[in-house]
Amino acid sequence: MGKGLPRKILIVLILPCAVYAIFFALQPKRFGNLQTLYIMFQQAFLPSISAWGLCFVMSLGLYDLSIGAIIILSAIVGTNLTLALGTGVGYIWLFIGCLATAVVLELVNATVYNLLKIPSMIVTIGLMILYETAANFVGDAVLPYELSIFGRAPYNIIAGAAALVVAYILYNRTQIGMQIGAVGGSEIIARNAGVRVERVKMNGFLLCGLFLGIASFLSVSYGGVIIPSTRMSSILRLFPPLMGYFIGIALKKVCNIIIGIFIGEMVIIMVVTGMVTMGVPTTYQQVITGLFLLAVVGIATKAKTDEVVK
C-alpha cells in the first residue's frame, strides 16, 4: 500500500467521476444537484449489503443463487414476527427476526452443501425453489410506517455504514476473512496447510446470511411491502448485488473489494438514475447497463493469454 496509495485512489475515483461528469454534462439541471447525489448514495447501500454478503461466498469460489429468496423469506418472517410480538421497539424484533431467519437459511444452504457434496450452484437453485414456496405459504410482509425508520435517512445511512465497517473488518482483519481468502485462492493449498475447509465454507455462508439479514431488514423498511415471488423469479433480486460484485472484482487490483463493491453499486445507480432523468426508455436502460458492465469488466480484466478462464 503506502506509496501507491494516492495513485490507486485516483484510479478508483476515475470511474464514478467519469460517469457523473457525463450525465452532469448531459443533464446539468436534473442530475447535478446535491439531493440527487445524496439519494443515489443512500440507494447504493441496499444492493451493496447483499453484495458484501455474496462476496464471502463468491470469494470461496462458490455461488449462492438463493439470496433473493432468502431476503424475501427473511423479511416476511421478520415482519410477521414483529406484528405478532407487538410494537413499541418493533424494529428491534424486526431486525432480530430478519437476521435470525437469514442466518438459519444460510446455515441450511451450507449444511446441505457440505452434506450432499454437490456443487453450490445446484444446491442453491434447489433450495431457492423451496424457500420461495415457503415464503408464498407464509404470506406477504407489510410493515407499518412507524416501524420503518431504518428505511429513511439518516438511519439507513447509519445502518449501511455500520454494515460497511463490519464487512470491511470481517473480510480483511479477522481470521475468518483470511481463511476465506486462502480457501478461495487455492482450496488444495489451504487444505494442505491445515485449514478446515468445510468449516471455512460454513463460515462464508453464515456471514453471507448475516448481511442478507441486514439487507432484508433494510429492504422491508425501505419499501414497506415484500411480496413473495415464485417459479425462480426471486433470482431477479440477485442481479443488482451481482453487478456491483462484478465491478468490485474488476477494481480489485486498485481497491479493496468491499469498498469496490460500494463504488460499483454507486456507479450502476448513477447510470440508471442518469438515464431516468434523461428520459431514456427503460428497455434501453437494460441494454446500456448490460453493455456498460461488460465494458468495465472487459477493460479491467487483463488475463494472460494462457490463463484459464471459465
Partner: peptide, 13 residues
Amino acid sequence: AEPAANAAESFIA
C-alpha cells in the same frame, strides 16, 4: 416495492 421507491426518489430529486 424497493425499485419503485428508488424510481420515485430519483424522480423527486
